[in-house]
């Protein structure tokens, strides 16, 4: 297969690592070469948490400027922040529900107008899926499943050669039993967004 670099970005606590892990497990179950990098430590205290999934034999675990093939972002400000890692052909899948940083709450900086800047993203990139993943997650039963909704959309785009069935099996195997049903529903709702 063609190799592929997928960037996940979000805020500590949004489940970035679970999403990239599930994708990685599914890729391995499908017999693909996979490498994931994760952020642990201080950034998990409400900072930016990034992870990557590299498919098809790429050895480097991190993604340089302009090199992401796909970006999956859990938070719109973080989408804007990570745009430099994308190129014109990068597919962008992004939640549009803001998580306001405390620097904004304290009045030290201003949160950008998301609808305006999402329009900008749509003009700069050829393939953009921007939607309110949080309301879909709530519809599935928990607002925490934003990560799984977006994972669904990623698979729905068909840009990653991993089948929805395998992801669903991985969710059944790796997610805590009490959350499996809501996560499967969230995955399904995400799939339909693509």
């Amino acid at each position: 297969m063609k190799s592929m670099r997928i960037l996940f970005t979000g805020v500590g606590g949004q489940g970035t690592l679970l999403a990239s892990r599930l994708l990685g497990e599914a890729a391995m179950a499908q017999g693909m070469e996979v490498k994931i990098s994760e952020v642990h430590g201080m950034a998990q205290r409400g900072g930016v948490v990034e992870s990557t999934v590299m498919l098809g034999g790429i050895e480097s675990p991190i993604i340089s400027e302009g090199q992401a093939n796909i970006m999956v972002s859990f938070e719109p400000l973080e989408t804007l922040r990570a745009l430099n890692r994308c190129n014109r052909d990068t597919a962008i899948i992004t939640n549009i529900t803001p998580v306001i940083p405390f620097t904004v709450k304290l009045g030290q900086s201003e949160y950008p107008d998301i609808s305006q800047w999402m329009d900008f993203v749509s003009t700069q990139f050829k393939m953009v899926y921007a939607f309110d993943a949080e309301s879909l997650a709530r519809e599935a039963g928990t607002s925490k499943a934003v990560n799984i909704v977006l994972l669904g959309t990623l698979i729905g785009t068909g840009r990653v050669p991993i089948s929805a069935d395998i992801i669903e099996n991985t969710i059944r195997e790796k997610v805590k039993p009490g959350f499996v049903d809501a996560n499967l529903k969230a995955f399904e709702l995400g799939l339909q967004q693509a």
Binding site: G47, G66, V104, E110, Y111
Partner: peptide
Amino acid sequence: EPEKPDLSSLPPLPMRPPS
């Protein structure tokens, strides 16, 4: 290198330090 988007018009983005 792949063609990069023009991001020069992006506003300054609020930082998100851990807290």
